[in-house]
Amino acid sequence: DHDVVPEDKFQETLHLKEKEGCPQAFHALLSWLLTQDSTAILDFWRVLFKDYNLERYGRLQPILDSFPKDVDLSQPRKGRKPPAVPKALVPPPRLPTKRKASEEARAAAPAALTPRGTASPGSQLKAKPPKKPESSAEQQRLPLGNGIQTMSASVQRAVAMSSGDVPGARGAVEGILIQQVFESGGSKKCIQVGGEFYTPSKFEDSGSGKNKARSSSGPKPLVRAKGAQGAAPGGGEARLGQQGSVPAPLALPSDPQLHQKNEDECAVCRDGGELICCDGCPRAFHLACLSPPLREIPSGTWRCSSCLQATVQEVQPRAEEPRPQEPPVETPLPPGLRSAGEEVRGPPGEPLAGMDTTLVYKHLPAPPSAAPLPGLDSSALHPLLCVGPEGQQNLAPGARCGVCGDGTDVLRCTHCAAAFHWRCHFPAGTSRPGTGLRCRSCSGDVTPAPVEGVLAPSPARLAPGPAKDDTASHEPALHRDDLESLLSEHTFDGILQWAIQSMARPAAPFPS
């Protein structure tokens, strides 16, 4: 592969990997390779389809078979030569091979799209000592099968071997295949498990690692696999990028399955594409389908809103127990993405979901129960707010008499603000006073009005108090039968009158 990737590009890729991570280095090298001529790309395919690569990765054979028959990708048995050289000459001794072996032994695996480039050397060096003999053996194999790289107009793939297949390693990572398949204008990513390549439709969760975000852009890794992070704060999961590491605690105790298979379609829109997988259930989501939507993949363990709600429900009964003089119970939860139609709101002032922060849900004790107040519409209280300059209440639009249902020339009671006709409430011909108009209920007259088809109010509507207090003497005590009587009149003013009279009014101040 030294004929494909020059030394300066190799060093530039290593520097970019240390600065921005393996995914960015892979993407940059792939983009550079696509700008080369067809001879360089053909050399790339020839390096990929060597015999030892085909033996190690069985899924490469179907890719090789898909090439046109007129494309010669065979390799000479006596060494490598550029395709432009007409004579089959043995190339001179390859010093770059020693360079590659020494550099890969030092860096474990470079971040390139060629056999030198995919593992994360920093994480491997940190986690190597417990498994040094086995990992050293794996390093000797890295130059042979560490990076199976493929690129063409139909298929483009980048393979990364790992030393996680050490025997006896619980939940060992089998390997990473960062794979971009450009077929019919689409893009897919796969993962390699035990020599087999699994596409998103049959993606397997190998051991402790999972394909957290099938994305090839942005600074985030394709698999949430930063070796420096180790395990999740809650004892979460091992990262795919942690090559040759000792077994780590796999999943939280509440995880239903340690080796679950995540779905390959969004649980909201039932469509495929780039998904984020939940650590607590097999569901996966688009970032845009979450509520609120996320802009980037959160670091650490992530769970959907259903799993978060289940966790909150487990903690909430203990938080609601009476604990005198104790601060509110704080339950730190990872930043969760909410699927459509589901929402768990945190306290005000918290950062938005999706940031690399930890939301704190506070379970406050329930407030003391209070008697429910009568629910009145805002339009129902409008007549009470229509007060004239002299303190006389004006008529609201649409006000109707509670007896006849007519809204023409209605009066407004100064005591309960109900609309009424003087002739309907006082049919006996009582003279109307000039000021202080009161309806039949507030004036103490319980004589029913002779209106055909309208039920008369119940005599129990009024329960006047002592006459010594004029204001308190007109406080009506309405009961269920009074409400039914008012409802039978089918008037809004009657219902409003009952609601206003049912509310307690402050006692009249004593004259000074």
Rank of each mutant, 00 (worst) to 15 (best):
P464Q: 10
E314T: 13
S485Y: 14
R412I: 10
S305P: 05
P476H: 04
V360A: 10
C281G: 08
A366P: 14
T357P: 08
P397R: 07
V454S: 08
G375Y: 11
R412E: 04
N262E: 13
D271M: 14
I495F: 07
G405W: 13
Q393S: 08
A472T: 00
T301W: 14
A477V: 11
S305I: 12
P506W: 06
A460Q: 08
P324T: 11
A472V: 10
P324G: 08
R295L: 11
P334V: 08
C442Q: 05
Q497I: 02
L352G: 10
V403A: 02
M355K: 11
L258S: 11
A319V: 08
D469A: 09
L258A: 05
G241I: 09
W302D: 11
P293C: 13
L333Y: 07
H425I: 01
P293Q: 03
T414R: 06
P293K: 09
G405F: 06
H259C: 07
A460Y: 12
S306N: 07
E274T: 10
A340G: 10
G354R: 11
H425M: 04
C439E: 03
R270W: 10
P383F: 04
V246R: 10
G273K: 07
A428P: 13
R461H: 15
T471N: 06
L250A: 10
G300L: 12
L308Y: 09
L496E: 00
L462H: 13
R480W: 06
R303H: 07
P328D: 12
L287E: 13
P298E: 09
E330G: 10
E265G: 12
G272T: 14
Q257S: 09
T430C: 14
P427C: 00
R345P: 09
I297F: 08
G405C: 13
C304Y: 11
W302K: 12
G405K: 11
L308K: 10
D481V: 03
A319E: 09
P332K: 12
L478H: 09
L294A: 11
R440A: 07
P324C: 13
L487T: 03
Y361I: 09
P476A: 06
G272S: 08
E263T: 09
C304S: 14
G354W: 15
R480N: 02
P256A: 09
L308W: 14
D271W: 13
T311V: 08
A370W: 15
S441T: 03
R432F: 12
K362Q: 14
G434H: 14
L381W: 09
V451F: 07
T358Q: 06
A507P: 11
R432N: 00
S254A: 12
A366F: 15
L333P: 12
A396R: 08
T311G: 12
D445N: 06
G300Q: 05
A267K: 11
P509H: 06
C266Y: 04
P397H: 14
T408P: 12
C277R: 08
E350Q: 06
V312I: 09
Q497C: 01
P348H: 10
L308R: 12
D493I: 03
S299T: 13
P372N: 13
P249F: 05
I500H: 03
P282Q: 11
L373F: 07
P298Q: 05
G280H: 15
S488R: 03
V387F: 10
G375N: 06
E320C: 13
P282D: 11
V312W: 15
S379W: 15
C307R: 14
Q497Y: 04
A499I: 04
